[in-house]
Design a protein around this nucleic acid. Structure first.
Length: 257
DNA sequence: ATGGTTGTGTTACAA
């Protein structure tokens, strides 16, 4: 079963890129982030016509997450628990076959210090709580998406230049590594233990052409899912196309029916 | 070099 995550930076602007990629790559499950549209405006038909079921958690202009699946989507949970006043559409969780899938769009957190960075850290604390709850069930799960976190300096093309960015802060990294220390596995690093494996390139300054990227999209696996991990990779092809998202898909394959 | 790009939805804000 192929499971992917992609921050599309507007599903409406990206629909041609998304549909061609679904047909070429044929993932079983996809977590999408930054839909930038309300549920009613999501292009359901165009994606359902390709054989995908859909669960969408949209929002006007900003954020928005979805899960696509060739298999039935069950027990959908909208929103990350822990703050009833949080109205940003950044989390969706559902069960597909025997795997619990959590699709997330972690807050960017810039500028810092300030309320946006505080919100990011609080959101990460809530994600840690949710990860603990899922781990207690001792079943297969994946927490995937745009984490807006460069775990290490090697995950950034110029760590000096971006040292002040929220994606690089020790407080951000500490919380990311707390997730790993709970027992989650960074799927990509199982196959590419070190080096540059970027998933995001800024639109500005020819970042893509210069390979000035960041590794900020991650697939974190529960121990039961990691036991079935066959392969993981980053598909750079969509980033090089016309009208591309600034992110490109990350995917993994699990050995399950 | 205090800029640059893309998207939403109105011309400001987020990334």
């Amino acid at each position: 079963m192929k499971i992917a995550s992609w921050n599309v930076n507007s599903i409406k602007a990206r629909l041609p890129r998304v549909t061609e990629w679904l047909q070429e790559f044929s993932p079983d499950v996809v977590m999408l982030q930054e839909l930038k549209c309300i549920d009613e405006n999501f292009p359901f038909m165009e994606i359902e016509d390709l054989g995908y079921n859909l669960s969408v958690h949209g929002q006007k202009s900003y954020n928005g997450v979805a899960i696509l699946s060739k298999h039935p989507i069950e027990d959908v949970m909208i929103g990350l628990p822990g703050d009833e006043n949080d109205e940003q559409a950044r989390y969706i969780e559902a069960t597909i076959k025997t795997v619990r899938i959590g699709g997330l769009y972690l807050p960017n957190g810039n500028p810092l210090p300030g309320p946006k960075f505080d919100y990011k850290l609080a959101w990460m604390d809530r994600l840690i709580v949710r990860a603990k709850e899922l781990l207690a069930q001792e079943e297969m799960f994946i927490l995937g998406g745009d984490y807006n976190c460069c775990p290490k300096d090697e995950d950034c093309y110029d760590p000096i230049r971006l040292a002040g960015d929220a994606l690089m802060q020790p407080e951000t990294r500490d919380r990311y590594f707390t997730l790993l220390n709970l027992g989650l596995t960074d799927a990509l690093r199982q196959f590419y233990p070190s080096g540059h494996n970027y998933t995001y390139w800024d639109y500005q300054g020819g970042a893509w052409q210069k390979d000035n990227g960041l590794r900020i999209d991650h697939l974190l696996l529960s121990p039961q899912a990691a036991d079935r991990l066959v392969k993981c990779g980053i598909d750079r092809v969509p980033r090089g196309k016309e009208r591309a998202s600034d992110h490109t898909p990350i995917w993994c394959e699990l050995d399950i029916d």
